[in-house]
C-alpha cells in the first residue's frame, strides 16, 4: 500500500512546477493566437498553458467548461471571440472586475459598464459574395434583403445558434424586436435558405458556386482571398455594420491571478491589436491610435457601425436561438 502511495505522490508531484504559469481558454484562431501567446511567454517569462476552442456543433465550447469549473476554476484568462456569451459569463459571476487602468485606449462602448470584460480587435459580420453572380454585381446591403425572391435558394448561413452567427441573430432580435425578427426568419425559410456547418463552410459554399451569398465573418473571407481565391465581400450597412470584438475576461478565483492580469494587459495592448490587424484574420483594432497596415480594416472606414447594448443583446440570446430553431431548423 505504501508503495502505491509513493507512486501516486511521485506522479502527481512531477506535475508541480515553480515557474510562473497562466492558463488561458482561447476561442480565437489557434494559428494567430499561438504566435501572440508565444511572444508573451518569451517576453514575460510566464509559461502559458492554452486550451483552444473548437466548433460548438460537435461539442459544447469552452464557455460551458468555464461554467462547469466555476466552483474550482482551472482557467485564469478567457479570450472569447464574441461578446454576448462573455456578458452571460460575467453575469453568472465567472469573471472578476478588471483593474481600473486596463486598456485606456479602448472606448467604453467596447467594454462592460461594470468593467468585468473588455473588447479588443473585432471582426465584422459580412456577406461573402460570388463575384460572378448577380449578388457579386449588385450586392444586398441589408440582411432584410435576403428574403427577396431574386436570392431564392442562393443564400446560406452557418448554424444560427452557434458562434458569431448566433450572436448576430441575438443582435438582430434585440435591434428589430421579436415580431420583425421572427417574420424575417420565416421569410428566410420560405426563400430556401441553406444551413451550413460553420462560417467557413458557409464561405466555401459560395466559393463552389452552390449559393451566391453567405452570411459570415470578415476573417473567413480574408483568409481565402490571401490564397488568391476571388471572393466578394459586402457589409450590411443598411442594418448597421455589426462589429464583434474579441473579449478578455479574468476568471474569479483563478489559481494565478497576477499572471492572469499580466497576460490580459498584454492582450489588450495596441501591439496585439496591430498583430491581429495585420494577420490573415484582418481584425479591426478598437484602440485609439492603433495603426492599421495596407489591406487592413480601419474602424473609421466601416461606415455605419451599429452601437450595441451588449447586455440587452445577451439577454435576447436564448430566445433568439429558440426562434431560429423553430423557424429554420425544425422540419
Amino acid at each position: 500500500m505504501k508503495n502505491w502511495l509513493w507512486i501516486i505522490l511521485f506522479v502527481t508531484g512531477c506535475q508541480g512546477q515553480n515557474d510562473p504559469v497562466v492558463t488561458i481558454y482561447c476561442a480565437h484562431d489557434r494559428a494567430h493566437a499561438e504566435q501572440i501567446l508565444d511572444l508573451f511567454e518569451k517576453e514575460s517569462g510566464i509559461r502559458v498553458e492554452a486550451i483552444y476552442d473548437t466548433e460548438a456543433s460537435k461539442t459544447v465550447g469552452l464557455a460551458e467548461r468555464l461554467r462547469a469549473e466555476k466552483d474550482r476554476p482551472r482557467c485564469d484568462v478567457h479570450w472569447s471571440n464574441e461578446p454576448l456569451r462573455s456578458v452571460r459569463l460575467a453575469n453568472e459571476g465567472i469573471y472578476r472586475t478588471l483593474p481600473e487602468d486596463f486598456a485606456p485606449g479602448i472606448d467604453a462602448k467596447w467594454r462592460d459598464p461594470q468593467n468585468r470584460w473588455c473588447g479588443f480587435a473585432g471582426r465584422v459580420r459580412a456577406l461573402a459574395l460570388d463575384p460572378q453572380s448577380p449578388a457579386g454585381k449588385n450586392p444586398p446591403t441589408s440582411v432584410r434583403d435576403l428574403v427577396n425572391e431574386q436570392w431564392r435558394d442562393k443564400v446560406t448561413l452557418a448554424d444560427p445558434r452557434l458562434g458569431t452567427t448566433g450572436t448576430h441573430m441575438a443582435i438582430l432580435k434585440w435591434s428589430w424586436g421579436e415580431a420583425d425578427f421572427t417574420a424575417w426568419l420565416q421569410g428566410l425559410k420560405e426563400n430556401g435558405i441553406r444551413i451550413a456547418a460553420s462560417n467557413s463552410a458557409t464561405r466555401d459554399r459560395v466559393i463552389t458556386g452552390e449559393v451566391w451569398i453567405g452570411l459570415t465573418d470578415t476573417d473567413d473571407i480574408e483568409v481565402v482571398r490571401r490564397r488568391g481565391i476571388d471572393l466578394g465581400e459586402g457589409f450590411t450597412e443598411g442594418d448597421g455594420v455589426i462589429l464583434l470584438p474579441n473579449v478578455v475576461g479574468l476568471i474569479e478565483g483563478s489559481p494565478h491571478p497576477e499572471e492572469a492580469e499580466a497576460l490580459a494587459r498584454w492582450l489588450l495592448s495596441p501591439r496585439v491589436e496591430e498583430m491581429l490587424a495585420a494577420s490573415s484574420s484582418r481584425q479591426v483594432p478598437l484602440g485609439k491610435g492603433t495603426k492599421v497596415g495596407p489591406g487592413g480594416l480601419d474602424l473609421n472606414s466601416l461606415g455605419n457601425v451599429m452601437t450595441i447594448d451588449w447586455s440587452a443583446a445577451a439577454e435576447t440570446l436564448p430566445g433568439a436561438i429558440k426562434d431560429v430553431e423553430r423557424a429554420l431548423l425544425d422540419r
Binding site: A56, V60, A63, E64, E92, R161, I321
Partner: peptide
C-alpha cells in the same frame, strides 16, 4: 445537436 445547443445557452 439540439442537446448541445441547449447546453450552450445554459438551458
Amino acid at each position: 445537436r439540439r442537446i448541445m445547443a441547449r447546453l450552450t445557452i445554459g438551458d
